[in-house]
């Protein structure tokens, strides 16, 4: 495997503005296998102190501005775990202007909880000044790339952190003019941001759109991958899978993770489970599966 592709992209994140240069440092360390922190199991998770992921990930939108009971839960979680974040409403691909006041709220939240990793989706969820609260696919076009790249830089400047963008699942292309991998690569390369590689999304998209997931992985900017997601999905018809995060991860998706790890530097891997949440020991089994795969590729010394 090429050495260049084994370098952690966050370590070499290009600091493009004075404020980022001032910040100057981004560190993940040994936080490697994490769990999506959901309100549905938050209290039980904290009470039992089980499972024990290396980090937890939450959506800032679900916690910003909260006090009372949920603030106490969040503070307890923050005392115990390293927190990474995965936003939902940035809408980086929207035709609408960026919501700058909201990005500043995110920045404050990240600062308050000393969170260094902020990821989002390469999609849009707001249009004509109305939020959809779900992720819509951006047309794969060159003008969309030119539209999104400066927006990423603006977000990074405000957050004083690298933005890590996820390849999203989609069920139909929208007025596509270039291939998906070219679209993703152009945005990541031209903006200098990092990539969140969701291996389940690659699996889902490969199935839904009839391409080879392994070949697709190799076409991505793997040297820029800073974070990985893995999740379950639901096959709703002979030719369509919906990315539900509501089922167990299936063996072919674990296999795709295994395959992907051959080509990248050690980066954190996150298990997402948003619906139909099982007993916590079942989630722990899934975390252990990921750890087993991870340890095939990276020793602890290599991670640290």
């Amino acid at each position: 495997m090429p050495n260049a592709a084994r370098k952690n992209p966050i370590d070499s994140f290009k600091l493009t503005s004075p404020c980022l240069k001032k910040q100057g440092f981004f560190f993940i360390g040994y936080f490697m296998v994490g769990l999506g922190f959901r309100k549905d199991f938050a209290e039980e998770f904290l009470e039992k102190n089980f499972p024990t992921p290396d980090f937890i990930e939450l959506a800032p939108e679900n916690w910003i501005g909260m006090g009372g009971y949920w603030k106490k839960i969040l503070d307890r979680a923050a005392d115990r775990f390293k927190i990474f974040t995965h936003g939902l409403s940035l809408s980086i691909g929207s035709p609408d202007p960026l919501d700058i006041p909201y990005i500043r709220k995110i920045k404050k939240f990240l600062d308050d909880y000393q969170i260094t990793l902020y990821s989002e989706h390469l999609s849009y969820s707001q249009c004509d000044n109305a939020h959809l609260y779900d992720l819509l696919p951006i047309p794969f076009t060159e003008d969309a790339v030119r539209h999104i790249v400066p927006r990423i830089k603006t977000v990074q400047d405000i957050l004083e952190r690298p933005l890590i963008l996820e390849n999203v699942s989609y069920y139909t292309p929208v007025a596509a003019e270039i291939p998906e991998h070219e679209f993703i690569t152009a945005i990541i390369r031209e903006s200098g941001c990092c990539m969140l590689l969701d291996v389940n999304n690659v699996f889902v998209n490969a199935f839904n759109h009839g391409y080879d997931a392994h070949e697709f992985i190799l076409k991505l900017p793997l040297d820029k991958v800073a974070y990985i997601h893995i999740a379950g999905h639901e096959k709703v018809s002979d030719d369509l899978i919906i990315d539900t995060h509501g089922q167990d991860v299936i063996p072919p998706v674990y296999e795709l993770l295994d395959y992907t790890l051959k080509f990248i530097k050690p980066v954190p891997v996150l298990l997402e489970r948003d619906f139909n949440i099982p007993e916590l020991d079942e989630l722990d089994n899934e975390l252990q599966m990921i750890r087993n795969i991870y340890s095939k590729h990276f020793s602890k010394a290599e991670i640290c």
């Binding site: 849009y124 249009c127 004509d128 696919p137 951006i138 003008d143 030119r146 539209h147």
Partner: peptide, 19 residues
């Protein structure tokens, strides 16, 4: 920066989801 065509496609998809 966005071409009119891309903009309209995004608006139409969002509008479909709402309406």
């Amino acid at each position: 920066m966005l071409k009119e065509k891309t903009l309209r496609q995004q608006q139409k998809l969002a509008s479909f989801c709402r309406t």
